[in-house]
Amino acid sequence: MSSAPVRFGVVVFPGSNCDADSYHAISTFTDTSVQYLWHKDTDLKGVQAVILPGGFSYGDYLRCGAIARFSPIMQSVIDFAENGGLVMGICNGFQTLVEAGLLPGGLIRNTGLKFVCRYVNLRVETIATPFTSACQTGELLRIVVKHNEGNYTVDPETFARMQADDQIVLRYVNAAGDQDEGANPNGALDDIAGVCNAARNVFGMMPHPENSVEAGLAGGADGRKLFQSIIDTVLRAAEVTA
């Protein structure tokens, strides 16, 4: 069994502000290494998983993630994703992935027209992804959202295909684990909080698991399982090829 650490890269765009949190979250695991990937670079430096962090890349000008999507590093991330590489976008990272066309749908203004910053309960809808494999189906994760454009929308045909292909990964639910209008912070279609692509190697979510990796601190540790899933997936792949 390989003991080499799982190599993560965290992309840094101008205006990213959760890059250091993501870096820190990954470094709380013992079997990882992590480095920053600068937006003007094109070299992914041999990383095995890419995190697109939260923030306000390029000032959120035009649309959230619209300018970031054309940065030099994103051309490499798109190639990496198209070759099966693991890519996780958190908040602004999710917005960047939909702008890049790596994930279906779009993210528009919250229906309440307000920036929301609060805890949400997420229900894990599928564990058949490299990002949720360490969870249980139906498990609830309590982590934070902090965004103004998290209202997920997608056309009905694509939505039907996403449901058939099990691409809805996380939903906002109430404390009992049920869908409930009051539990949805932004008006997202069918309470969608996170989705993956059809190939399942690209995942985006609005909430911030990187702020929930340390038990005993305010954020709790419910976000750990998502990072653990990526680590497990990479280590399992290494075992197969070893």
Partner: peptide, 13 residues
């Protein structure tokens, strides 16, 4: 403009 058929939260307000 917001795509036809997609709710525009600002327009609705």
């Amino acid at each position: 403009t917001p795509k036809k058929g997609i709710l525009d939260p600002q327009g609705a307000a």
